[in-house]
Design a protein around this nucleic acid. Structure first.
Lengths: 207, 207
DNA sequence: AAAGTAAACTACACGGTGTAGTATATTCTC
DNA sequence: GAGAATATACTACACCGTGTAGTTTACTTT
């Protein structure tokens, strides 16, 4: 866990070690079952040092959560291309989305966070609010395609939500809930293809 | 909480009281934050009595979980009707599904269970296995419609999953995750309608 | 280069709290 | 009057967060 760059001060390095250790522990055991002693041990740091950097277990957790949300946010961007077939563009969008939400780390952290949502609601509201405030990139893509006369959509927010549902319904949520086995590449592609076709069958203009 | 029928022995009544109290407490606070003392207090029963009926906190939880799964199982059934329009039938199916999965109690219990899935995995595997083994009723409905020549579906399991995804993606999972507000009747109907139309646009035969 | 210094880290002990499960002596219920 | 329920107190344990005495790090001064 000591990936520290040598330019940083000792204190800064320790801080990063603590964050990394906490992330790993939370990922493995969840918030409740992770003790500050374990985090300190894993970070090779005294427990006191942990408390010198973070005033409480909650504060440390919030720091991790914020980090995670920020990483999430800067992951997706989509630009509408009038020259390419909608099917290709949508498939590409879907692949990226699926890629992201099926990563074991992503699934694990998501699980950890919302297991605690109710206990941290006030703190998380801010984070979630901030993370989701920005417009949905897919919604913008749809608006562009509509303006270009290639889709027929009344409520683009709803349409974007439906497309997302199609992808996550089989590949993400059941993993979160913990009652689904991992999906193969083959299965993922089948879902993506079906989602794209369902979307275009309903919203496409040329048929 | 004393809904006990008077035909039962005292011991049996107490047992039911304990189960009811546990269910309520778990629902309100989750498994971890519910103490056996609280359950006993709510059931108006001594703690020792709780332990006479259930050997441990886990055992009591499993009893509740099993009860919940059984209730779930016997909720849905669908029959294909060659005389009625597909759209009407699908809408009906969707409404029932949505009705079920948006009930606050259902959402709450689901949350409680899968928060603990990882800690009870072995025990839950059995229950989940048993609950989900039966064929999906929607899948059967689709097969019937295909046999009747009114749908064109290659993989009915996939098709059923996609339809389910459309419904749950906006109305169920976000509630479970805890980052969505409650949906109005109006919003539910919008999602249902959109889901039905997307499904028929892709799988319907007459267009 | 050696000495000095402030800030950060370590090891360790301890108070306080919550809670699963048990023990015991007493009272109800049928 | 026997089997069950009750009240109460107890054990065992895990874990958060704090206080402290002493050491290390990194930077400054001489």
């Amino acid at each position: 866990m000591n990936m520290a760059q040598s330019k940083l001060t000792l204190s800064q390095r320790k801080r990063l070690d603590i964050l990394a250790a906490a992330r790993s522990e939370y990922l493995e055991a969840g918030f409740r079952d992770t003790s500050m002693d374990r985090i300190a041990e894993r970070a090779q740091v005294s427990k006191r040092t942990v408390y010198n950097h973070f005033p409480s277990k909650e504060a440390l957790f919030k720091a991790i959560a914020t980090q995670f949300m920020v990483d999430l946010r800067q992951a997706i961007s989509v630009a509408y291309d009038p020259a390419k077939p909608l099917e290709d563009q949508l498939t590409e969008i879907a692949r990226r989305e699926v890629e992201q939400v099926t990563q074991p780390d992503h699934i694990g952290m998501f699980r950890v966070f919302f297991t605690e949502v109710s206990n941290f609601s006030d703190a998380f509201d801010d984070i979630i609010e901030e993370t989701y405030r920005g417009e949905d990139p897919l919604e913008n893509w749809i608006d562009a395609a509509v303006a270009d006369g290639r889709l027929s959509v009344e409520d683009s927010a709803l349409a974007a939500a439906m497309f997302n549902s199609l992808l996550k319904g089989a590949l993400f949520w059941p993993q979160i809930a913990g009652y689904a086995k991992k999906r193969s590449k083959r299965e993922k592609e089948a879902v993506i293809s079906e989602a794209v076709h369902m979307f275009l069958a309903h919203y496409g203009r040329q048929r």
